[in-house]
Every structure is written in C-alpha cells, then in structure tokens.
C-alpha cells in the first residue's frame, strides 16, 4: 500500500510538470475541402462528428485549431499523420 501511495504521489508530480503540454495544431490552407478535413479528424482521432466539425470550422474560420495535446512524441506522431493526409500541421509547446 505504501508503495502504491508513493507511486500515486509521483504520478501527481509528473502531472504537475506536464502542465505545459505540447500541442498539435492544424492550420488553414486554401486547398483542402472542408468535408475532407472533417473526415480526417473523425477517422484519425476518432472524434465524434460534432467535435470533428467544430475543429474543422475553427481551422476554417480562425485559421488554426489545437487538435490534440500531451507528450511531445505523441504530438509529433499526430502531426506526421496529418502531413500524411496532406494537412498543414505543426507541433508547439504550451498555449501555442
């Protein structure tokens, strides 16, 4: 039990350190169809239709959207996948 509690404390400390996570951002481009971008978000991230549409409209209207946040390696994998789909995507640290 003690060991478990210590591990829990370590987990909380790790979460504190990760308060500024990395983010994957998809940028607007004049090329890609809105229906395509939304379909990519649903298929790749598994977002429900509403959330995928919301993110796609953010990209379209605001020029960009944070599509995921977490560890740097995971964000690079997401961005690589987005590049595979032909979307413009970048990795940033913090609020981005």
């Amino acid at each position: 039990m003690t060991a478990t509690l210590e591990e829990l404390d370590l987990d909380l400390a790790a979460q504190g350190a990760a308060e500024v996570p990395w983010r994957a951002i998809v940028w607007d481009d004049p090329i890609n169809l809105m229906s395509y971008v939304s379909y990519v978000f649903r298929s790749y991230f598994g977002y429900p239709r509403d959330e995928a549409e919301r993110l796609m409209l953010l990209v379209h209207n605001e020029g960009r959207a944070v599509v995921a946040s977490g560890h740097r390696e995971a964000m690079e994998r997401h961005v690589q996948a987005m590049h595979g789909y032909g979307l413009q995507a970048t990795v940033v640290r913090g609020e981005g």
Partner: peptide, 15 residues
C-alpha cells in the same frame, strides 16, 4: 512535406 516546427530549425530538421 511541411515543417512541423517552422520556428525551430533544429527541431524541424530532426522531425
């Protein structure tokens, strides 16, 4: 094949 780190040449090259 866009850059994943347009503001960071080193990270971009590594990506």
């Amino acid at each position: 094949l866009p850059s994943a780190y347009p503001d960071d040449a080193e990270a971009s090259a590594e990506y």
